[in-house]
Design a binder for these strands. Sequence first.
DNA 1: AATCCTATGGTACGTCGTACGAGTCAATCG
DNA 2: CGATTGACTCGTACGACGTACCATAGGATT
Lengths: 231, 231
Amino acid sequence: MAAKHTGARSERSQRTSEWLQPAGEPRSEPPLSRERIVAAAVELLDAHGVDGLTMRRLADALGSGVMSLYWHVDNKENVFDLALDSVLEYHGQQTAQQAQDWRAEAVHMLEDWRASMLRHPWSASLLPRRALGPNILSRLELLSKTLSRAGVADADLNVAIWSLWNYVMGATVTRASFDLSDEDRAAAQQRLTSLSERYPTIERSRLLLDNDWDGAFRQGLGFLLDGLSPR
Amino acid sequence: MAAKHTGARSERSQRTSEWLQPAGEPRSEPPLSRERIVAAAVELLDAHGVDGLTMRRLADALGSGVMSLYWHVDNKENVFDLALDSVLEYHGQQTAQQAQDWRAEAVHMLEDWRASMLRHPWSASLLPRRALGPNILSRLELLSKTLSRAGVADADLNVAIWSLWNYVMGATVTRASFDLSDEDRAAAQQRLTSLSERYPTIERSRLLLDNDWDGAFRQGLGFLLDGLSPR
DNA sequence: AATCCTATGGTACGTCGTACGAGTCAATCG
DNA sequence: CGATTGACTCGTACGACGTACCATAGGATT
């Protein structure tokens, strides 16, 4: 509701008179904008995780006052929403061979999706709490079109879409949570060995130690697509 | 590390002398314990969501001082861990016919899993950030045994487990996030209609309006198991 | 009687999100 | 030209949070 804005105002007056520059501050800050705020937020989230993003830190990183942010953004939740969606944009090149190999196209989009989120592990833990942003909807739309073109029956379409979505979401969320556990790598290792007697089967198959996440993702996706393919 | 405890001390002295009871306070609070704390935390989470759980509120609900909690619990993160794991316990009855119908057994466990989490929607948004608790590992162990018994090749076993896990996780996380969006039901509705031109395919298939979540989950799970089944 | 362990909780500190309102500056209008 | 308006910035302050620190009390052990 609030925060109307145009993004006009190209550059600032650049500090003409010297008599108020408090100290050596060579920064010529561009004006605030929703875009700059979101970019800085993503940077902070990448660097310090979900808990590392505070409005004060964000303002510091932008060289502005804290409350100035609230002109461009509703509140902190809104920052999370925008940061998440900004990270999920898809630049899928529409090659001419898209129609002939629907399966490759779907796999490509879904792998890109997963990769985008793993580049920003905080995004996975944010997703469950936020509504669907435009970039997510775009991907669902594209997936829907692709499957439809592939010959999936209309009656099965929604189930197919959700199945693929669920698979990607789950894989990403799981993988990201493993990434985040660097703080207690030692504890995890110890827990694994201490529990090997209690969970013999998954210990034997080395379920938690298997590091070929990408391969497992691709292979499982293949199985799922097998199940979904029109027979 | 801290917070050793026995859980001994069965009941308190029940307030014998009246001369210090400040006012009509008919509560005979049992002593604190990790179990009571976790139970109260789950209750608060159910009622007020993730952000509604604070240590002060938790202490109030238990009729104790805030800092007393820290004797039994390391910190707030620890409370989240315990609450999450407590909600994921599985009471799978080991019927005799388990060996013959591995597929039904897997489906049963996975649907119970999903149902448990949907009973406590906050659990889905918590999962991505926390390590694997014992109850999660138990379920993975059971799933592993079941699939192994079903004849899934050892080489495919981990992929199969993760695929199913991912599917359930994704489905649950997605579903729970839809549940949580009751605060902006109006906004969502408006967004849907306003965006119907931009996303024609998913609008036409009514992807976001389809309310048969349970059916879609079961059906998609079927597809996935089809793909995973040894041929 | 002295000591120790378990358990409770009051006070206080630093940090958080953000409401409020005063400030600056350019554009517009009379 | 001065007055007004609207976009934008930000200092101050408030209430709520997690939790470190420390004082306390009572039962068990010595």
